[in-house]
Structures are given as structure tokens and as C-alpha cells.
């Protein structure tokens, strides 16, 4: 099994787009993602304090997992003055939207190596994508645990 086949389909496509982009085009692509990170939905806007902060990030990144019948949607809040981190968050958000917790847990921890961002970003900057992936996996694990506990509940919930 190749690394790509373990990725949710949309994330696989995004990785491929980055592979095809050359040099500074990779950064432009990341910037496009940074620009299109969806704003928090209304129901979360007043509840940002209830969201989990990814403490390992130097940039304040808030994330919440919404479970829509075992398909996860992540909502991120990242300050606009951190476009690189926003870009990662946005590509992960789009890439894993609607994936099951199992699919998310299968994403190889180094999937972003395939994107070739290490050529244009320093290791410290790459750490951001690693950290956010590790964090959404943690949330996916929690979802998995709670869905096993309440397997007949179909009510969407957040953590």
C-alpha cells in the first residue's frame, strides 16, 4: 500500500497538486488555502472558549471536531497573521472533510513530505502541519472512543 492510498481521497488530490507545483508555486498554493479557510460557523462563533487549543503551536490554533453521523468535519480558527499555519489547517480541513475517524487515524504522520514543502519551508515551519495532524488524530481517537460507547446514538455532537 502506498502512502497516498492511505489518505482520504481529497487529501490525496491536494498532495498531488502540491507535488506538481514547483518552487514558489507551492507557497502560492498554500497561500490560496490560507485565504479560503472557512470562517467559524455561527454556532461555534460564540463558543470559541469551548474549542480545544492546539497548545503545541506557537500560533494560537483552535479546533473542534463535529461528528456528523460518523463523518468528521473539523472547524479551525487560526489568526490571519499566521497564513502558513492557516494554509495547513485549511488544506487539512478540506482534505479530510467527511472522513471517518478510522480514515483519519490511517493518515501517515509524514504524509506532507510527499507535498515537497520541505524544499520551501524550514523544518520549524513544517512542524505546524505535523502538529495539527497529530491533534486532529487525537480528536478522531476521542470520537472513536465515544462512538463505541454510544453506538446507537445518531445525534451529532462536538467535543
Amino acid at each position: 500500500m502506498t502512502a497516498e492510498s492511505a489518505l482520504p481521497p481529497r487529501l490525496g488530490e491536494i498532495v498531488e497538486d502540491f507535488q506538481l507545483a514547483e518552487g514558489s508555486e507551492k507557497l502560492e498554493l498554500l497561500l490560496e488555502y490560507a485565504r479560503k479557510l472557512p470562517p467559524l460557523p455561527d454556532w461555534l462563533r460564540d463558543r470559541r472558549d469551548a474549542m480545544d487549543q492546539v497548545h503545541e503551536c506557537m500560533t494560537p490554533v483552535f479546533v473542534v471536531a463535529e461528528n456528523r453521523d460518523r463523518k468528521l468535519v473539523f472547524h479551525f480558527d487560526v489568526p490571519p497573521e499566521s497564513p502558513t499555519v492557516r494554509g495547513y489547517a485549511a488544506l487539512l480541513e478540506e482534505g479530510v472533510r467527511g472522513a471517518t475517524p478510522e480514515q483519519i487515524l490511517q493518515i501517515p504522520g509524514d504524509f506532507y513530505q510527499e507535498m515537497g514543502l520541505q524544499d520551501v519551508l524550514s523544518p520549524r515551519r513544517l512542524q505546524g502541519v505535523h502538529t495539527i495532524l497529530a491533534y486532529i488524530k487525537r480528536l478522531a481517537t476521542k470520537e472513536l472512543a465515544s462512538s463505541e460507547l454510544q453506538s446507537d446514538s445518531s445525534t451529532p455532537h462536538t467535543i
Binding site: 507557497l27 497561500l31 497573521e81 497564513p83 520551501v120 519551508l121
Partner: peptide
Amino acid sequence: EDVLLYDLGHIPGAVKIDWVS
């Protein structure tokens, strides 16, 4: 610090110098 920040908007006429690249 953030390599993309300049591209979102900078002081008119300013050039970017990135510490890594």
C-alpha cells in the same frame, strides 16, 4: 517569521527578505 505574511499585504513599495530562503 511567516513566509506567506508579506504576500497577504505589506507596506507599499516594501520588498520581502525571508530568513530561510
